[in-house]
Design a binder for these strands. Structure first.
Length: 873
RNA sequence: GCGGGCGUGGAGAAAUUUGGUAAACUCAGCAGACUUAAAAUCUGCCGGCUUCGGCCUUGCGGGUUCAAGUCCCGCCGCCCGCACCA
């Protein structure tokens, strides 16, 4: 029993070298076994790995190692999402080139990942800022352009005044830039767009096929695409509008409430509003005021419904005698529907607020169930639930959906100026994806502006359009624009001098196809079709829920677009998706609570008392206040550096702790005590396995006859194997961990009790072998070391997953819990094959059952075979 | 406002897939063994009440069922997403 203390540092480095020297984790595309592609969202090279990465990659690595042991050809690559603003910010602040900053960070983080012992195929590594990668991205862009998937338009864009760049709608959060936090302004610019909205319906419908995605993410995507079915209706003006329009076109999802129409509303950005404003100073002022208010959450919440009567009137399409006033109103959005509405105040809260303010009619047309049509009044709350149509002439008595159909049918057949007055229409919230960014550190958009030919795609032979290295960051804005010579080029079409596009692509483009590039990272085309089709879709994708909409939706679009340009042949890139929780930690503050300075965990010591727990500064011994548990962040200083942990305890301990306790989708709380618990387990396993290796012989040949405790242990071994296999299959890492603790407890007991029963040696040795194999995906270094101590001469990383013996998964006898009136009152041990009648008879013999029955027969006796017995008295 | 999720010991949690022994496993705590002492390790206890027979207990209130943490209805609380989308 002279086993030495486990030296993680030495052991981990040794096995990592062996794996590397033997190319154990290099994957070949021509391997004939079934494929399994496991991918974790690749990191942005911000500088150092954080605990969130450790958690994410530990999970992915467990899946990769488990599937490898199960016999799959596993693809598990890693790369870097390497373009983006922080590199430019660093350039501006520290006078370091974005390229140097990025590649330095990558070098640091690569080493950090390597000491985690991840089973990655590093031969496929790339960074999105590698010329080799963005060349292919430019090639893909040109193919998309040719296929009509890209276009340029003058558009109002979200302008971030701090980063001095354009943001996609998705990147505007509460009216602020997602990165800078600055209030976003509206600006007119010519921008490049991807036609993601062409795929709205397809992207929406296919969500139903993603049955291995979290419901939450699927729902978020559904809402984001935001489909609504309705009717586009033209209301005839009583007099031609100043724009020359004879009718006002609106979109509605509630044509059933048409008889409740009270007024019309125009967006302040509607062409008619703009035209009227030219001769109406009051309206002009109002529109300007609307623009000033902005679109922030706060502004919208506080904004009162306001508007101005334009003086224009329209005729009601179903009742020509009725004329409706046309207002410009601040709550109507130009970029949804037609930018104009008909308002039915009784059944829409916004319309109601507006109508009450301006004294416009409120006529209910949907009657709630059991309400009195004479007295029903909506008051200050619009009625939006189901009901029956009334006050609506021919529609009276219809259900809402029947009324919708009836109105659509009627207005489709009425002609106004030769065209149908209404058309059914489906509207989506999803807008095209603006990808232009006025930045240097991104993939250049490979087009040329020529005075003679206009906008011309760069020739494929001229790719790549490479970023210049000599660049300065003295002023804000786009450095490519200011570069003295980079812009100058020849027109690919006519050969005359022309200028390069200086916009670069949104970095979300880079991450929208990297998973495909990993399948053939050196291909001289964006993809090797066979490789991509062979490996994709990704079987298990793992990452943070913060990418639930943007990255995942863009990737789904990209896969479709790539299918269209024949770069690959599938629609959905990610078959299984898992969104892991965050890593959190207690926060600490110096001095007086809320105003105190944040203190890092490494600066304090926790003192546990009987019923007290306090934190004191290491340096001074002064007490600091313990605050809420929050996501690890630099600003709150509650971070723990993974390399410090690995230096002290080793990678296995860090990985094991990350996988223990908390279910993977939930937040995990990082605690020093918890890490130490994991460390103790590492040592305990090491001692136990060492002792078993010393005292028992390796197994071989047929299992011997076992009895008593040894038989029980063999059953435990196989039951644990069965359970852990399914836990890992379902990403239930915390459950798998708990079962391995149980197995260690059970094995120690048999081993320490002297192994008196027949076959105990075998049972204990089997337990050790199984234990080591089952923990190998989670603690691979310790597992390799133990595996070799147990006398195996192969690598556990290359060993096959063991098979559970079905005979050992069931016991000879069953312990039935016995309930009396549904409360457990005792138990009954009986042979497994006992018939229902035998169980019933045995139950009635039990003392506590007899007592409860007190001589009379039970009202009911329920036996659920192999489960439970319930006696109803 | 709309949509979704969650609520179990001192803490993280299990059991939620199929309604069937609530609290496995870990952390913290307590008591003990070993030790000159500490660390490490090992053993035991650890939801509440109890007249020691038991009784109660999964946010609260109801319901379905032989049986409810699990299903249904209504509240309360917390978290997440979207947000003037007609």
């Amino acid at each position: 029993m002279a086993t030495e203390r486990y030296n993680a540092r030495e052991v981990e480095a040794r096995w990592q070298k062996i794996w590397n020297d033997k190319d154990v984790f290099v994957t070949h595309n021509d391997d004939p076994r079934d494929k399994y592609y496991v991918l974790e969202m690749f990191p942005y090279p911000s500088g150092r790995i954080h605990m969130g990465h450790v958690r994410n990659y530990a999970m992915g690595d467990v899946v990769a190692r488990f599937k490898r042991a199960k016999g799959f050809n596993v693809l598990h690559p890693m790369g870097w999402d390497a373009f983006g603003m922080p590199a430019e910010n660093a350039a501006m602040q520290n006078k370091v080139h974005p390229k140097d900053w990025t590649y330095d960070n990558i070098a640091t983080m690569r080493e950090q990942l390597k000491i985690m012992g991840l089973s990655l195929d590093w031969s496929r590594e790339f960074a999105t800022c590698d010329v080799g990668y963005y060349t292919q991205q430019q090639r893909l862009f040109l193919k998309f352009l040719e296929a009509g998937l890209v276009y340029r338009k003058n558009a109002k864009v979200n302008w971030d005044p701090v980063d001095m760049t354009v943001l996609a709608n998705e990147q505007v959060i509460d009216g602020r830039g997602w990165r800078s936090g600055a209030l976003v302004e509206q600006r007119e610019l010519t921008q490049w767009f991807f036609r993601i909205s062409d795929y709205s319906e397809d992207l929406l419908e296919a969500i139903d096929t993603l049955d291995r995605w979290p419901d939450k993410v699927r729902l978020m995507q559904k809402n984001w695409i935001g489909k609504s079915e309705g009717l586009r209706v033209r209301f005839e003006f009583t007099e031609t509008a100043p724009t020359g329009d004879r009718a006002l076109e609106i979109f509605t999802t509630r044509p059933d409430t048409l008889f409740g129409a009270s007024f019309m509303g125009l967006s302040p950005d509607h062409p008619i509003s703009a035209k009227l404003a030219e001769s109406n100073p009051e309206l002009k002022g109002f529109i300007e005021e609307c623009h000033r208010v902005g679109t922030s959450e706060e502004a919208i919440e506080k904004a009162e419904k306001k508007g101005i009567d334009t003086g224009l009137r329209v005729r009601h399409p179903l009742d020509a005698s009725l004329e409706l006033p046309v207002y410009v109103a601040n709550f109507i959005l130009m970029d949804y529907g037609t930018g104009a509405i008909f308002a039915c105040p009784a059944h829409d809260q916004r319309d109601l607020d507006f109508a009450r303010k301006y004294g416009l009619p409120v006529k209910p047309v949907v009657l709630p169930k059991d309400a009195d049509p004479q007295s029903f009044d909506v008051g200050s709350e619009a009625f939006t639930d189901d009901g029956t149509i009334f006050n609506s002439g021919v529609l009276d008595g219809l259900s809402i959906s029947d009324a919708k159909q009836a109105v659509a049918k009627k207005l489709e057949s009425v002609k106004l100026d030769g065209a149908p007055q209404a058309e059914r229409q489906v509207n989506y919230r999803l807008r095209d994806w603006g990808i232009s960014r006025q930045r240097y550190w991104g993939c250049p958009i490979p087009v040329v502006h020529c005075d003679a030919c206009g906008v011309v795609p760069e020739k494929d032979g001229n790719l790549p359009v490479q970023l210049p290295d000599d660049i300065d960051f003295d002023k804000p804005g786009n450095p490519l624009d200011r570069h003295p010579t980079w812009r100058e080029t020849a027109c690919p079409s006519c050969g005359k001098p022309a200028r390069r596009e200086t916009d670069t692509m949104d970095t979300f483009v880079d991450s929208s196809w990297y998973f495909a590039r990993f399948t053939a990272p050196d291909c001289d085309q964006p993809t090797d079709r066979d490789a991509a089709n062979g490996w994709l879709p990704v079987d298990q994708y793992i990452g943070g829920v913060e990418h639930a909409i943007l990255h995942l939706l863009y990737s789904r679009f990209f896969t479709r677009a790539m299918q269209k340009v024949e770069a690959l042949d599938l629609k959905e890139p990610f078959k299984g998706l898992f969104t892991q929780g965050m890593v959190t930690h207690e926060t600490y503050r110096d001095g007086d609570g809320a105003n105190g300075r944040w203190v890092a965990p490494s600066e304090i010591r926790i003192e546990d008392g009987d019923n007290t727990r306090r934190a004191v500064l290491l340096e001074t011994g002064d007490e600091v206040s313990i605050g809420a548990i929050e996501k690890m962040s630099k600003s709150k200083k509650n971070t723990v550096d993974p390399t410090d942990i690995i230096d002290t305890y080793g990678a296995d301990t860090a990985r094991w702790f990350m996988l223990s306790d908390s279910p993977p989708e939930r937040d995990v709380i990082w605690t020093e005590d918890g890490v130490q618990g994991a460390w103790r387990f590492v040592q305990r396993v090491w001692r136990l396995v060492g002792d078993i290796a010393e005292k028992t012989e390796p197994r071989g040949g047929r299992p011997p006859e076992v009895s008593g405790k040894a038989l029980d242990l063999r059953r435990t071994n196989h039951k644990t194997l069965d359970a852990v296999s399914s836990d890992l299959e379902n990403l239930g890492f915390n459950r798998a961990v708990a079962r391995l603790y149980e197995l260690v407890n059970a094995t120690s007991k048999v081993f320490n009790d002297g192994m008196a029963d027949a076959g105990a040696d075998y049972a204990v040795r089997e337990a050790a072998d199984f234990l080591v194999q089952m923990m190998a995906p989670m603690m691979p270094h310790l597992a390799e070391e133990c595996w070799s101590v147990l006398g195996h001469d192969n690598l556990i990383s290359e060993a096959s997953w063991p098979q559970a013996d079905p005979d050992l998964l069931v016991d000879d006898s069953i312990v039935y819990p016995v309930q009396v009136n549904g409360k457990r009152r005792g138990e009954l041990t009986i042979a497994k094959e006992a018939s229902k009648e035998e169980v019933e008879a045995a139950t009635l013999e039990l003392d506590f059952v007899r007592k409860a029955l007190d001589g009379s027969a039970p009202k009911k006796l329920i036996v659920v075979p192999q489960r439970i017995v319930n006696v109803v008295v």
